[in-house]
Design a protein around this nucleic acid. Structure first.
Length: 631
DNA sequence: GAGTTTGAAACT
DNA sequence: CAGTTTCAAACTC
């Protein structure tokens, strides 16, 4: 890999090639020059305005140390593959005047360690970072885009000494942290909790127990509405472009608190020397100061040539400003060059709307784990790399691989070679997909079998009713009061038999007749049901009393079977049952909740295919079902 | 810490 | 759109 290129190649505007860019560049230069001309400005401005500055704290500190003596901002250029827009900057907004250590300031900037985000089931009420991503996906995938609005009045000022700092990941127009970038980049210990709701802004409240002072607070301007946003589906399907404006952090600041160029100038000029020391210290010195990550796992960039205005720069790619702790050189990814940053970003997004979209998106399959026991059975990973990796030599087992780095498996979009990604190999993904597909087909078949089974059962039952409509009292009534171990055993064995019938789709009298052989109590059951002589005895029933008894028993079983099928019809899938349990308590769902409380396992088992794995004791549940569901 | 490797991003 | 170059992070020594 050569380093033949030089910065000027990446920054053609510095050569004044593009008039427009030159103009922009000149404007920037003017700004910088202006900054340089205000050395005599009063310096008292800094502390007060710093306290209200709606920018990254690190930047604020930096501003106090900034001379502004930088080169003109680089040319904004890019050209990338086009994709759908996913515009979602989020912002870090600072705490009023808190004294934050240098480390804390660095942390307040952001963490880029998305690879360490741990998955956590949302069922426990908290969300890990990956879960937050999942949450985002689930939010949009569930027609209710549960976007919440932040109200500045509701934004609690997190104590700088608090163990659980709060970051409001607000998605406003303009430059800022992309929500998913935050999700991806927060280190272990950070978690995105519930959406925050208010009237004027939107965001997710992200707490970080491991990063005190990670982010101070969000302050939105009531009434400006600029923080209105929508969270994208992790699959990138739902994103609000309408929210794409060019409001900035500064614009979010309440009147009188806005950071003006004038302020910045005064601010920066006051600390010219310090900034000079910071921004122009030798790379070696910077490298000495920081490693690629700080103690808490927050990454920092080390860009030398891109001025942090290309996606090579992790900070820029993540939609955040570089921090003091970055080791970059000639960095323009700083709030004072906001316009440049915005222009660059917009240009990139115009070419590739997903340029700043999260690289890792949620992958939704049919088989979400619905409880701890199920976790992992069908969901090897919930994340995917947006475009897939292209690894040739790392075999996807090193952080060169973005999939591996993000703790997600490779999949069929990856062009990797010799993939050995421990989170899921590309080949395995195909197998997984096949399994999922097969299972879906299987379920469809089972559903068809159930329908057929039910139809057959109904026909048989109707047939039986021809013999005597009143022959069998309501089985539910009769059995619900007699759910003893004796009956349980009968039902268990019967169900096992019926299970076989269901699977083979070969329900027939001949098979059902074998029930009696399987269950010694089978005839007893029939006996208990058969107290009424047949009004129209058929030749069959006339044949012998034993055969009559058996037929009666069969009819009883068929009726029971029918009830079971009806019960199963209430639950198209175990997941629906589970979801229902947690959702709206309609009357029907209340019943389901009851059912799930009675014995979810048995219901679940019995849902996919009638009476599959009818566990011992669940027949009692059947009695409950029949009774409570009134079917 | 210097040098190398790697693959994404950028460029042609 | 494919091939090449540039880039910075990851990795190795």
């Amino acid at each position: 890999m050569g380093t033949k290129g030089d910065a000027s190649k990446d920054m053609p505007e510095q050569d004044g090639e593009d008039p427009k860019e030159q103009s922009t560049s000149e404007t920037k230069r003017e700004k910088i020059e202006e900054e340089g001309n205000i050395v005599e400005q009063p310096s008292h401005v800094c502390p007060s305005f710093v306290s209200d500055l709606l920018v990254d704290h690190a930047f604020r500190q930096q501003q106090c140390d900034t001379s502004g003596a930088q080169a003109a901002p680089p040319h904004v250029d890019d050209g990338e593959d086009g994709e759908t827009v996913l515009n979602g900057p989020v912002q870090l907004i600072t705490h009023h005047g808190s004294e934050v250590s240098q480390l804390q300031r660095g942390l307040s900037r952001r963490c880029l360690q998305f690879e360490e985000a741990q998955q956590k089931t949302p069922m426990d009420g908290t969300y890990s970072l990956d879960s937050a991503t999942n949450l985002i996906g689930s939010i949009s995938s569930s027609s209710n885009t549960e976007l919440e609005i932040l109200d500045s009045s509701q934004l609690e000022l997190a104590s700088s000494s608090s163990k659980n700092q709060t970051m409001f990941v607000s998605k406003s127009s303009g430059f800022g942290l992309h929500l998913n970038s935050v999700v991806n980049t927060l280190p272990i210990g950070c978690s995105a909790s519930e959406p925050i709701m208010s009237h004027h802004s939107v965001g997710y409240k992200i707490s970080c127990s491991k990063l005190p002072n990670l982010v101070e607070r969000v302050s939105s301007t009531a009434g400006d509405g600029v923080l209105q946003t929508m969270v994208s589906n992790a699959t990138g399907s739902a994103i609000s472009e309408s929210l794409r404006t060019k409001e900035t952090l500064y614009n979010l600041q309440p009147p009188g608190h806005q950071v003006t160029l004038h302020n910045k100038r005064r601010f920066s000029s006051e600390h010219a020397e310090n900034f000079e020391e910071f921004n122009q210290s030798s790379p070696k010195e910077k490298r000495k100061k920081v490693s690629s990550t700080d103690g808490d796992g927050c990454k920092r960039c080390n860009c030398k040539k891109t001025r942090c205005l290309k996606r090579y720069c992790d900070c820029f790619a993540a939609g955040i400003y570089c921090a003091e702790t970055c080791a970059c050189q000639g960095c323009f990814n700083r709030p004072e060059y906001e316009d440049t940053v915005l222009d660059t970003r917009q240009q990139k997004e115009s070419h590739n709307p997903l340029a700043f979209a999260p690289k890792i998106v949620q992958h939704v399959t049919e088989f979400h784990a619905i409880n701890v026991e199920d976790a992992g059975l069908f969901m090897p990973s919930t994340g995917r790399h947006k475009t897939g990796c292209n690894c040739k030599r790392s075999m996807c087992v090193k952080k060169y691989c973005e999939c591996y780095q993000a703790n997600v498996g490779c999949y069929n979009a990856c062009r990797c070679e010799g993939c050995k990604n421990i989170h899921g190999r590309k080949e395995e993904y195909g197998m997984t997909e096949e399994i999922v597909s097969n299972r879906a087909n299987e379920e469809r078949l089972e559903s068809m079998a159930d329908r057929k089974f039910k139809m057959i059962a109904n026909n048989k039952f109707l047939h039986a009713e021809l013999y005597d409509h009143s022959m069998l009292p309501s089985y539910s009534k009769s059995t619900s009061s007699s759910s003893n171990s004796h009956g349980n055993d009968k039902l268990h064995k019967t169900s096992k038999t019926l299970d076989v019938v269901s699977r083979s789709q070969e329900l027939d009298y001949s098979i059902i007749e074998t029930m009696g052989q399987f269950s010694p109590q089978f005839d007893e059951l029939a006996d208990s049901s058969d107290h009424t002589p047949l009004r129209n005895p058929s030749p069959i029933t006339m044949a012998s009393s034993s055969s009559k008894m058996r037929d009666t028993a069969i009819i009883s079983q068929l009726r029971l079977l029918e009830k079971w099928i009806e019960v199963c019809a209430f639950f198209p899938s175990p997941h629906s049952l589970y979801r229902s349990h947690r959702s709206h308590p309609t009357e029907k769902l209340k019943k389901q909740i009851f059912v799930s409380d009675v014995g979810y396992t048995s219901c679940k088992e019995s849902t996919n295919a009638a009476m599959i794995n009818f566990v011992p004791g669940s027949d009692t549940n059947l009695m409950f079902l029949i009774d409570k569901l009134d079917i």
